[in-house]
Amino acid sequence: MSVVCIIPARYASSRYPGKPLAVLRGATGETQSLIERSWRAAMAVDGFDAVYVATDDERIAEAAERFGGRVLMTSETCANGTERCAEALSQIGGGVEMVVNLQGDAPLTPAWFLEDLIAGLRAAPDAAVATPVLRCDGETLNALKADRLAGRVGGTTAVFDTAHHALYFSKEVIPFTAGAYPADAETPVFHHVGVYAYRPEALSAYPGLAAGRLEQMEGLEQLRFLEHGHAVLCVEVAARGRQFWELNNPEDVPRIEAMLAQMNMP
């Protein structure tokens, strides 16, 4: 039984067309595409038996093959990354214990986020899906709030119950918090890290579930599981001094490049 990582990537993003091929400069001045940096993040994880890029675009496929990635071609009709992972899984076949979806816009994802995620789902037999959450410090929370005030989606937040089962995910900043926090202060807000671990049967069933009202309103694929009554486990992960941000908008490129430089990542 294997643990497979799939990185879904599409060219036709409404907010940022061509995003997987966006170039990011690291601390040494070396440039790599977003999809390559995401693939390298996956390759650093202890526990993956295989890593694939799943795409419907030949430009992304060619770029992935140039840096040594294994590619699975999927259809243009996939509504989101989870549907693309489900189609990719059907090509891989059986013998898979778990599928990890590392979305291709999170190149700063530390390896231990994914390793903790795998361990978390293994330890929770009642959960069909698991996803990491990271407690925001004041700097991150203030950045999320600033993005929303500017009309940008700067990230997704999550709330969960005492058993760490998700109650809701939103592109708004939830729960409500008044005022600003010092940059290094802990806050009650959790940043959802855009990674998922699925049991194969849950992933295979996902495309057959109707997209619900909340999924369509928020544009968050994980809400389909919640709307159909499937438990989603939130696995709390620790930053350990690493900064984390997803590339959601073109304005995020300099922010991520600054983080790469600050953390001395090539």
Rank of each mutant, 00 (worst) to 15 (best):
E227P: 08
W245G: 00
Y198N: 01
A128E: 15
G179Q: 10
A178I: 09
L144Q: 08
G95C: 07
Q222D: 04
Q91M: 13
R59N: 12
Y196M: 07
R15V: 11
D57Q: 09
Q262I: 00
A64W: 03
E87D: 10
S2G: 01
L24I: 05
S33Q: 11
G229T: 07
L167R: 15
T157Y: 05
A183F: 13
L108M: 13
A50K: 13
A54K: 03
F160I: 06
G18N: 03
N101A: 06
W245I: 04
C234H: 02
A261N: 09
N101H: 11
P175M: 11
R37H: 07
A123C: 08
Y206W: 13
M1T: 10
C85K: 03
A183P: 11
I35S: 02
L149E: 15
L89E: 04
L102C: 04
N142S: 15
L149S: 15
R66T: 10
L260A: 03
P110R: 11
S2Q: 12
G241P: 09
R148P: 00
T109N: 08
E186F: 01
V51L: 04
S170K: 06
V153W: 12
A106C: 09
E221M: 11
R240T: 00
P188N: 09
T177E: 14
T156G: 00
E251P: 00
I118H: 07
S33I: 05
T77E: 14
C78K: 05
V45W: 05
F190C: 07
L203F: 02
R70E: 14
D147E: 13
P132A: 09
D46A: 14
R122S: 09
S75C: 06
T82V: 14
G69H: 04
I60N: 05
E172M: 11
A127C: 15
I35T: 04
F225K: 01
R213G: 00
A54I: 03
G155S: 11
S33R: 14
L233P: 02
T131F: 11
T31P: 00
P125E: 15
A185R: 12
E30I: 06
G179N: 09
V195S: 12
P110L: 11
A158G: 05
F190S: 01
C85F: 02
E65G: 08
Y206D: 07
A166D: 02
E215K: 13
